[in-house]
Amino acid sequence: MRVDRISIAGLLLGLAAIMLGQVLEGGSLSSLFQPAAFVIVLGGTLGATMLQTRFPIFMRGMRMGRWAFVAPPQVPDDMIRRLVAWAQLSRREGILALEKQVGNESDPFYRKGVQLLVDGADATRLREVMEVEITTYENTLRQAARVWDSAAGYSPTIGIMGAVLGLIHVMENLGDPTRLGAGIATAFVATIYGVGAANLVFLPIGRKLQTHVSQLIAVREIFVDGLVGIANGDNPRIIEGRLLGYVAQVPE
């Protein structure tokens, strides 16, 4: 896995901009740190998200959150080189020569694809079986990624609830006018937390995860397309040219 530096830089820049703006407005940074508001927003958002999501999907979504900062392995170029080498080997020695590759694949998806190829599945049937696997895999990952989008939807509303709770506390202390200003300011920190978490953390992470999911699916589609080409007996150069189309760079 590789560290996604732009994600880390973006998060730090967003937080720094908010804090700098607070200082430039003459405010105090300490007023932005309110444990009660933090507990309300984080706990409320987490609870609402858990309520709408099945536990396995929720936990997968939480684990996927690290992908926003440490990208999952995605090496389509290596996959293409392997497939071209397999195509050359199968043309020289036959498809059964790929049988030893089955044990070299740790991922069940890739192992299943090679096994189907070695077992003599025709190109159409091989694609049908593997496309079902890809669809299931994609749906599972996208549902998990949407956990963060859901959190982004709930967070601002929970922040408003936190602000209202703070104002209720202020109204209970109207007898002491000296505390009103600070109390109202503290109450609205919950709104900042809710809106800030949604737009600086939850929503960006959700979008970044969707990007990674698309890239992971593309690698699997490359794999299936390569196996189909081998099953059809296509020339390795033709297979390579077709697969390189998946990673072609758009000219600037």
Rank of each mutant, 00 (worst) to 15 (best):
D4C: 08
D4G: 00
D4E: 05
R5I: 11
R5W: 12
S7G: 15
S7W: 02
S7I: 09
I8P: 01
A9N: 04
A9Q: 04
G10P: 07
G10R: 04
L11I: 05
L11H: 14
L12Y: 03
L12Q: 01
L13R: 04
G14Y: 05
G14N: 02
G14L: 01
L15E: 01
L15A: 09
L15Q: 08
L15C: 06
I18R: 05
I18V: 13
M19L: 08
L20K: 09
G21I: 07
G21P: 11
Q22S: 10
Q22R: 15
L24D: 12
L24Y: 07
E25W: 10
E25I: 07
S28G: 07
S31L: 09
F33W: 11
Q34L: 11
A37M: 03
V39D: 14
I40F: 12
L42C: 05
G43N: 04
G44W: 08
G44Q: 09
T45Q: 11
T45S: 09
L46A: 15
A48Y: 10
T49H: 01
M50P: 03
T53D: 06
T53F: 14
T53R: 07
P56K: 07
F58L: 07
M59P: 00
M59Q: 00
M59W: 02
M62L: 14
M62Y: 02
R63H: 14
R63D: 07
M64N: 00
G65R: 00
G65T: 03
G65H: 05
R66D: 00
F69Y: 11
F69M: 08
F69H: 10
F69V: 01
F69G: 01
V70D: 04
A71R: 14
A71H: 06
A71E: 05
